[in-house]
Simulated assay, not measured.
Amino acid sequence: MKMESDSDFAGGASPLSFAIAESTAEAVAMVADAVRGRRLRLAYHPVVLAAKPARIGFHEGLMRVLDAQGRVIPAREFMYAVEAHELGREIDCAALAMGLDALARHPQLRLSVNMSARSVGWPRWMKLLQAGLARHPGMGDRLILEISEASVMTVPELLVGMIAELRPKGVSFALDGFGAGAFALRHFRELSFDLLKIDAQYSRGIHTHADNQVLMAAYLAVARQFDMLIVAQGVEQAGEAAWLAQLGVDCLQGYHFAAPKLIPEGLEPCTCPPNALPQVRR
Rank of each mutant, 00 (worst) to 15 (best):
E4I: 07
S5P: 00
G12D: 09
G12Q: 10
A13W: 10
S14L: 04
A19F: 15
A25E: 13
E26N: 09
E26H: 11
A29C: 07
M30L: 14
V31N: 02
D33W: 05
A34G: 02
G37C: 03
L40G: 08
M63A: 15
R64A: 10
A68D: 15
Q69I: 11
A75K: 01
E77C: 08
Y80P: 04
Y80N: 13
A84E: 14
R89M: 12
C93D: 06
D101K: 11
A104Y: 01
R105S: 13
N114G: 08
S119V: 04
L128C: 05
A131S: 13
L133I: 11
P137E: 14
L143G: 07
I144C: 01
I147S: 00
S148L: 07
V152H: 00
V152N: 01
L166I: 03
P168N: 08
L175M: 15
G179S: 10
G181V: 03
A184P: 00
H187D: 01
F193R: 02
L196H: 04
D199N: 14
A217D: 11
I230T: 15
I230C: 09
V231T: 09
G234L: 13
Q237W: 06
V249Y: 06
A258G: 12
A259N: 12
P260V: 05
L262W: 03
P269M: 03
T271S: 15
C272R: 09
P274Q: 09
N275G: 09
A276T: 14
L277I: 14
V280I: 13
R281P: 01
